[in-house]
Design a protein around this nucleic acid. Structure first.
Lengths: 286, 286
DNA sequence: CGATGCATTGATATGTTTCAATAACGGTGG
DNA sequence: CCACCGTTATTGAAACATATCAATGCATCG
C-alpha cells in the first residue's frame, strides 16, 4: 500500500478505493455475486437477482494474488476469466524482441483474460501491483450458462466489446496525442475510474510509478514527470510524488482535447511552455 | 481499383486478392455460407457443414458499399455485424476535438462492428476504400443462434477476442516502436494478410495512401514516405508509388524487431542512417 | 491541357529521449 | 536508532527522431 496511513484524510477519498466496498462481515460468509458490492459494475450487472444467484454457483472460487505475482502468464492455457475484487493489476503486452508495454491498469470490477479466448492461450501477462483478490470465472461453465441465460450472453458480449472500445481509445491516445495531452487524458481517466467506484475523483493516490505511466502512454518516465510538474506549476493539478489533486478540471480537459495556447501572451509551442511555466513561478529571476 | 489492368502480371499475385475467391457463378445462385469461398476464415470457420447451413439462413442479406461510402457511422444504432466479402475498408476511431485516426484496414473475411455491442451504438466509423460488399449479420438472430449452437458462440467469442488481441498489437506498435519499425511491421502485416488469402505475400499493391498509412501508424505521411524510400535504397523492398515487392524478408523482420545497426561501419543513429543510405546510392558524390 | 491529388525530397523547427546528477523516501541490518 | 542502500522522482543539457513547411514531380481525370 502506498497510502500514508498516518495522514489525516478529511475528504475520505484518498484511501484505497477498493477497501470497504464489500463490508468485511460479508466477505467470508456470502461468496455470491448477488451479495457482492461490485455486482453493479461487474459481470452480473444487468442480470436479474435470480440469474445472479445462478451465476454465483459458477463463480464460487476466489484467488489471492500477492503484490508482484502474476495472475496469468503469456502462453498459459486459457481456462478462466477473472473479475478483480480487490487490489490493482497491470496487464502487459509483449512483442517479439524485448518489446513490452503496459496495456492497461485494472481495478475492482474489471474482467481480465478476454485475450485468451482467441487461441486458447493468454496472449498477455497480468501482474498484481498490490495484494489483490479475484473471482475465478471458469470459461466452460460461463459458456454453458450463457446458453441458458441469454442476458448473460449479452452481458458477456457487452464486456468484451467494451474492452475493444477501451483499447481503441488507447490507440487514439498513443497514435495521435502529444505528451501533455496523454498525461492529461491519463489523469482524467484515473479520476473518472475512482469517481465511478464512489470516490471523489479529484484527489487520489497514484498506484503506479512514473515509469509504468510512461509505459502505458508510450512515453519515457522523465517526460511524464516533466509534464506532471508543468501541470502543477500551471495550477491545473497539485502533485507530490504519488498524491494528486486535480484543481482545474476544465483546463485539464482543454489540454486533453488539444487546443494549446488559448491564452494571450503565452508561448506558441510546448517546449517554451514548459520553460515559461517554470520561470513565471520565480518572477524575481526575470 | 488501384490495380493497373494493362500490366502483365506473371506471378498472378498483384490483382485484387478478393477477386476470384468466390467463383462468379456462385455469387448469385448460392448465397450460403456453406458455399462461400471465405467460410474457412470468416464467421463459419470451425462449424460443421450443417451448422453452416443454419448460419446461412441468418446471413442471407448482402450490402454493397461504394468506394468512399460509409458502412456505418459513429453513433449509428447497433443492429448487425458485417462480414467483408469483397473490397477494402478502413475503420476510423474518433476522439473529442477533431482527433481521429485509422484503427485498422479490413479485407475479405474480417468481421466489422464489434464495437457496437458495448453501448448499442457503433463507436467508430467504417468506410469503404473500394467498391465493396459485406454480408449482414443481424445481431439478434446471431445471438439466438449462438444459444442453439454452442460452437457458434465459441466462434463468436474467438473472433471478438482476436480483435482484442489485434488491437493490443497495434498498441504495442504505436506505443513503443520507432518510425522505421512501424513501417516494417506494417509492410510485413500487409504481406501476411495477403499471404493468408492465398496470394504471394511478397508482391502487392498498397490500397491506401501514405497519409492513411501514417494515420494508422501514428506518423505523418512524409515520415512514412521517407522510410519506405530508405527501405528501397537499402534493398529491403522495391517500391514505386503503391507497388511493393518485399525483397529481403529477414532484414525487414530484423528492423521490425528492433536491433538497428547490426552492421559494422554503419551509422549509429537513425537520422544519419537515412542520409547514409541515400549517399551510398551515389558514390560518385563522395 | 490545366487542375487536382498523391508522393518524394530538402531544410528547419519542435517535442521527446537520452544521459547525467541530485534529492527524497522506505526499508534493513548493524 | 541511525547509517546505508536501492528505488523512485525531479531536473538540466544535449542528442535525436519526427513533424512541419515548402518546393517539385508525376500521374490521373475531366
Amino acid at each position: 500500500m502506498n497510502v500514508p496511513v498516518n495522514k489525516r484524510d478529511p475528504d475520505n477519498n484518498k484511501r484505497d478505493p477498493n477497501k470497504g466496498i464489500v463490508p468485511e462481515f460479508l466477505s467470508h460468509a456470502a461468496q455470491h455475486c448477488a451479495s457482492c458490492g461490485l455486482r453493479e459494475i461487474c459481470l452480473p450487472s444487468g442480470l436479474m437477482p435470480d440469474e445472479q444467484e445462478v451465476l454465483a454457483t459458477l463463480v464460487d472460487k476466489r484467488r489471492r494474488v500477492a503484490r508482484g505475482d502474476v495472475l496469468f502468464h503469456l502462453g498459459d492455457e486459457f481456462r478462466s476469466l477473472y473479475a478483480v475484487r480487490t487490489g490493482f493489476f497491470k496487464s502487459i503486452v509483449v512483442g517479439g524482441d524485448e518489446q513490452s508495454q503496459i496495456g492497461g491498469f485494472h481495478l475492482s470490477g474489471d474482467i481480465l483474460g478476454f485475450d485468451g479466448m482467441a487461441e486458447g492461450r493468454y496472449e498477455s501477462e497480468v501482474r498484481a501491483m498490490e495484494d489483490s483478490e479475484v473471482c475465478v470465472i471458469p470459461y466452460d461453465g460461463l459458456s454453458d450458462l450463457a446458453i441458458r441465460f441469454p442476458p448473460l450472453q449479452r452481458q458477456l458480449h457487452r464486456l468484451m466489446s467494451r474492452e475493444i472500445v477501451r483499447e481503441r481509445s488507447v490507440m487514439l491516445l498513443l497514435g495521435s496525442m502529444q505528451a501533455d495531452q496523454k498525461v492529461a487524458v491519463f489523469l482524467l481517466g484515473v479520476a473518472e475510474r475512482y469517481r465511478r467506484l464512489g470516490y471523489s475523483g479529484t484527489s487520489f493516490i497514484l498506484r503506479m510509478t512514473r515509469e509504468e505511466i510512461g509505459s502505458y502512454l508510450g512515453l519515457k518516465l522523465e517526460t511524464v514527470s516533466r509534464h506532471l510538474s508543468a501541470f502543477d506549476q500551471q495550477g491545473l493539478i497539485s502533485i507530490d510524488k504519488r498524491e494528486v489533486i486535480l484543481k482545474d478540471l476544465n483546463a485539464l480537459q482543454r489540454v486533453a482535447g488539444s487546443a494549446i495556447g488559448a491564452g494571450s501572451d503565452a508561448p506558441a509551442n510546448r517546449t517554451e511552455w514548459l520553460e515559461f511555466v517554470k520561470c513565471s513561478d520565480h518572477p524575481e529571476l526575470n
